[in-house]
C-alpha cells in the first residue's frame, strides 16, 4: 500500500476519541459567541482610525476662541479655515465609503485566495487613509512653523538676529524633527499591521507563488 494511502485511510477513520462529538444542545449556544476573527479586528481598527482623525480635525472647532482666531489669522481668514475643514471632512467621507465597500466585499464563502485579497484591500484603504493624514499633518506642521517664524512678532524678531547659516540650520533641524515625528507614527502603524497581518501576508505570498 502506498504510504499516502495509509495516511488517507487513517485520516478518514471515524471521529477520534479526543474530538468530542457535540450534540445540538452543545452546538446551539456556540452560534452566538463572539467572533475573534481578523476581519473584526481590522474593522475596529478602521473605526478607531476614522474617529481619531475626525477628532484631530475637530479640535480647532472645540478649542478656545483665541486659538481659532489665531488659526484664522494664520490662514489669512476664517473662510480658508472653513474651506480646509470642509475639504478634510469630505476626504474622511470618501474613506468611510471606500472602507464600507471594502468590508462588504469580504466573504468567508469566497475562495481562499479571494478572501485574502479582499482583506488586504481593506488594509490598503486604511493605509492610504493613514498616509493621507500623516502627509497633511506634516504639511500643517511645516506651515505652522513657517507662520510662527515669519508672522509671530516675538519669534520673528528673535529669528531676525540669526545669521543665514543659523537660520538654515534651525529650519533644517525643525524639518527633520517634524519628519521624524511623522516617521515614528508611520513605523508604529507598520508594526501594528505587520504583526496583525503577518500570517495573512505569508499565506497570500505562498498562494501567489503557485501562479508563477
Amino acid at each position: 500500500m502506498d504510504e499516502l494511502d495509509l495516511l488517507k485511510k487513517d485520516w478518514q477513520q471515524k471521529a477520534r476519541p479526543e474530538e468530542k462529538q457535540l450534540t445540538s444542545k452543545e452546538l446551539h449556544p456556540m452560534l452566538f459567541k463572539k467572533s475573534s476573527s481578523i476581519v473584526k479586528t481590522l474593522f475596529y481598527i478602521s473605526i478607531a482610525e476614522l474617529l481619531l482623525w475626525v477628532l484631530i480635525n475637530t479640535i480647532p472647532y472645540f478649542s478656545s476662541k483665541e486659538y481659532r482666531a489665531e488659526l484664522a489669522m494664520m490662514y489669512g481668514n476664517e473662510d480658508v479655515l472653513l474651506a480646509i475643514t470642509i475639504f478634510s471632512y469630505s476626504i474622511i467621507l470618501v474613506f468611510v465609503y471606500l472602507l464600507f465597500r471594502a468590508h462588504q466585499s469580504i466573504s468567508v464563502t469566497d475562495t481562499v485566495k479571494n478572501l485574502m485579497k479582499s482583506i488586504l484591500k481593506t488594509r490598503k484603504v486604511i493605509k492610504y487613509y493613514v498616509i493621507y493624514n500623516l502627509v497633511m499633518a506634516f504639511l500643517a506642521m511645516c506651515f505652522g512653523l513657517y507662520e510662527s517664524i515669519y508672522e509671530n512678532p516675538k519669534v520673528s524678531a528673535q529669528f531676525a538676529h540669526f545669521s543665514d547659516k543659523q537660520k538654515f540650520v534651525s529650519t533644517l533641524i525643525m524639518l527633520v524633527v517634524t519628519a521624524l515625528f511623522v516617521g515614528v507614527i508611520w513605523l508604529f502603524y507598520r508594526l501594528i499591521y505587520g504583526i496583525l497581518l503577518k500570517r495573512l501576508n505569508k499565506n497570500y505570498a505562498e498562494l501567489k507563488k503557485l501562479e508563477v
Binding site: I38, T109, L115
Partner: peptide, 25 residues
C-alpha cells in the same frame, strides 16, 4: 446566504479552511 446550490459539506470545507487559514487569530 447558503443557497443549497453546493452540498452543505462542500460549503463547509470552504468556510472551515478560510477561517483556519485567514480569519482565525
Amino acid at each position: 446566504k447558503f443557497r443549497g446550490e453546493a452540498k452543505f459539506s462542500t460549503w463547509m470545507y470552504r468556510v472551515g479552511l478560510n477561517t483556519a487559514i485567514t480569519l482565525y487569530r
